[in-house]
């Protein structure tokens, strides 16, 4: 196994990490976008057209692709703003699929024959830079006011708006930010794959990113990253049994969902200690809290009454 055979896997893993982080930011405000692949495709198409038909260099075209991703994301957020029920947020699914059909019927961008003629520009380092950029943005987002506001909107929209958070603003901003990352990564990917076809925008491609997200766990930034890395590398590792590869892939997804329903990585409640190989790496503050306060009422009512009486 030499380095060149690993290159595609490494590049796709890094770009998938970037895109799933875009989806992570979008999902933070409680709206799960099922149009990730479509937004990536918009970025990819735009960047491809600019470089091939207008002879732009790659970098400005990817920046413009990020902008386009942000615009599409915002449009999507405004379209779905009034929809509350989870199931109806799946409109994003139809949005992506409609974009796919549009690309299919638009001859200027290749139509059903796909868009070709790109030059290979993306290297491992470009992909790594993209992934690190996405990671940095997502990390800063998590600790920002917008990050806290969007988590508040996700957990309880009514309470959040009562606290003065504009739901429309938060959702539009998270969709725009996530869309920008996805559009950028999509453009970078287009310069590696060299062919963009309308099928790349479809629902089942988007669904992959949702699987990455939920497989890894949505509670922390690192969950989606782990999900994207594992689920991109895993099918490649399973190539020894080509025929049974996707069956195993499905079985692994089912197993993780059954055994770890919150995803692989979960956040431990603040204040709980964390031990790694016997060393205390985070101090356990919950013990002090529970000893100084009376036991929670739930413990008094459900079982272990003898203990509580002591």
């Amino acid at each position: 196994m030499n380095f060149t055979s690993l290159e595609p896997v490494v590049i796709f893993t890094l770009l998938n990490v970037a895109m799933v982080l875009g989806l992570y930011i979008t999902a933070m405000s409680g709206q799960l976008s099922m149009a990730t692949a479509a937004i990536a495709g918009v970025g990819g198409y735009l960047s491809a057209i600019l470089t091939v038909k207008f002879a732009w260099p790659m970098l400005p075209s990817t920046v413009l692709a990020a902008l386009a991703g942000a615009i599409v994301g915002t449009a999507l957020a405004l379209l779905t703003l009034r929809m509350r029920d989870f199931i109806l947020k799946l409109t994003t699914l139809a949005f992506g699929e409609a974009l796919s059909v549009l690309a299919f019927n638009w001859d200027y961008i290749g139509g059903a024959n796909s868009f070709t003629g790109l030059e290979l520009k993306t290297t491992v380092w470009t992909a790594l830079a993209t992934a690190l950029l996405a990671l940095y943005v997502a990390w800063r987002f998590d600790g920002s006011r917008l990050g806290f506001a969007s988590r508040a909107v996700r957990d309880d929209p009514i309470a959040a708006s009562a606290m003065g958070i504009s739901i429309a603003e938060v959702r539009s901003l998270t969709f725009a930010l996530g869309g920008a990352i996805v559009g950028f990564a999509g453009a970078v990917q287009a310069h590696y794959v060299l062919v963009i076809s309308p099928h790349d925008l479809g629902f089942f491609v988007s669904l992959n990113f949702i699987i990455f997200l939920l497989f890894g766990g949505i509670q922390t930034l690192w969950g989606p990253v782990l999900g994207a890395v594992l689920l991109t590398v895993l099918p490649e590792m399973l190539r020894f049994s080509n025929q049974y590869r996707l069956i195993l892939y499905g079985a692994i997804i089912v197993l993780v969902v059954m055994l770890r329903p919150d995803g692989l990585l979960t956040r431990r409640p603040t204040g709980h200690g964390l031990r790694l190989f016997g060393f205390e790496i985070a101090k356990d503050r919950s013990a002090n809290v529970s000893s100084s306060r009376p036991a929670p009422s739930s413990q008094l009512t459900f079982g272990r009454q003898g203990q509580a009486a002591e």
Binding site: I210, I211, Y244, L246, G250, V257, M258
Partner: peptide, 23 residues
């Protein structure tokens, strides 16, 4: 077994079963 969990988890779980059945 996934009853009472988030709608998305059963979605992914049944999707995994679908992938197994198809392939």
């Amino acid at each position: 077994p996934l009853r009472g969990r988030d709608v998305l988890m059963t979605l992914i779980g049944t999707l995994g079963v679908g992938i197994i059945l198809q392939n």
